Amino acid sequence: MSALFEALLGPDFARLPPTVQRLHAACGERRYLGHGEVRRGAHPLARLCCAVARLPPAFSGAMAVDMQSTARDERWIRRFGRHAMPSRLQRHTDGLMERLGPLRFVFVLAVRDATLHWRVRSVHLFGLPLPARWFAGVGAREFEDDGRYRYDVVAVLPRIGTLVHYRGWLDVDAPVGVPAA
């Protein structure tokens, strides 16, 4: 059985660093612990957008990601302190679809310079399409630094500025049990 990201990336999956491969190749339930830094934008509309998408508040400290993965989809709950940010990822005809609250993002995935890049292709809110150009400043990177899995996610919108920028690391070599809900 091929994991979701392996199926989406095909041969490019092998070009990812080992820690990124391990995170995305695993199936089943697991929890990864790490550290995260979250910076939030100050614009009033940024706060509203973050609330709708359930994006994390400003934060610095220990964090966890609970993942439940099959070959068809992945359910992630990113935990920044007391804030839980659930999402569901699955294959879409145009790439990788992620659902965050009432938002549905479709990302194009690409491997460049040993980094997995996520770029927005389309966005829907409550099923209604939003102009893709609004989301040119939204993306993510996954990479390895000093043998550790790292992530860097940024969301910047025109005229509003930064919604959220979060980054950090996870210990993908020591998954821990996932607690009961």
Rank of each mutant, 00 (worst) to 15 (best):
M1N: 12
S2Q: 05
A3V: 12
L9E: 11
L9K: 11
G10Q: 04
G10N: 04
G10H: 02
P11G: 09
D12Q: 09
F13R: 08
F13D: 02
A14E: 05
P17Y: 05
P18N: 13
P18I: 05
R22L: 07
A25Y: 01
A25H: 02
A26W: 00
C27W: 07
G28I: 01
G28Y: 03
Y32L: 13
L33E: 06
G34D: 13
V38F: 00
R40W: 04
R40L: 06
G41Q: 01
A42M: 10
C49D: 09
C50N: 15
C50I: 07
A51Y: 12
A51H: 12
V52F: 14
A53L: 15
P56R: 00
P56N: 00
P57C: 08
A58R: 14
S60G: 14
S60W: 08
G61I: 15
A62Y: 04
V65K: 04
D66N: 15
D66Q: 14
Q68R: 15
Q68L: 15
S69M: 12
S69V: 04
S69Y: 06
T70P: 01
T70W: 01
T70A: 03
A71I: 13
E74P: 06
R75C: 10
W76F: 00
F80W: 14
G81N: 11
G81E: 12
A84R: 08
M85G: 05
M85Y: 04
P86D: 00
R88L: 13
R88M: 08
R88S: 09
L89S: 08
Q90M: 07
R91Y: 02
H92T: 08
T93P: 13
T93N: 13
D94C: 15
G95E: 11
G95K: 06
G95R: 07
L96P: 01
E98L: 03
R99H: 12
R99G: 06
L100F: 09
L100T: 06
G101N: 08
P102F: 10
R104N: 15
V106Y: 10
A110H: 11
D113Y: 05
A114N: 05
L116E: 01
L116F: 00
H117D: 12
W118A: 00
V120W: 02
V120H: 02
R121F: 10
V123C: 14
V123M: 05
H124D: 10
H124V: 06
F126H: 09
G127K: 07
G127E: 11
L128S: 03
P129Y: 07
W134I: 02
F135Q: 03
V138A: 04
G139M: 07
A140E: 04
R141A: 11
E142T: 06
F143I: 01
E144V: 10
E144L: 11
E144R: 10
D145A: 14
D145Y: 14
D145E: 13
G147F: 03
R150K: 14
R150F: 15
V153K: 00
V153I: 12
V154C: 08
V154E: 02
V156S: 03
L157K: 00
P158R: 00
R159L: 13
T162A: 02
T162D: 03
L163R: 00
H165S: 05
R167F: 11
R167Q: 09
G168A: 09
D173V: 15
A174M: 13
P175N: 04
G177P: 10
V178H: 00
V178S: 05
A181W: 15
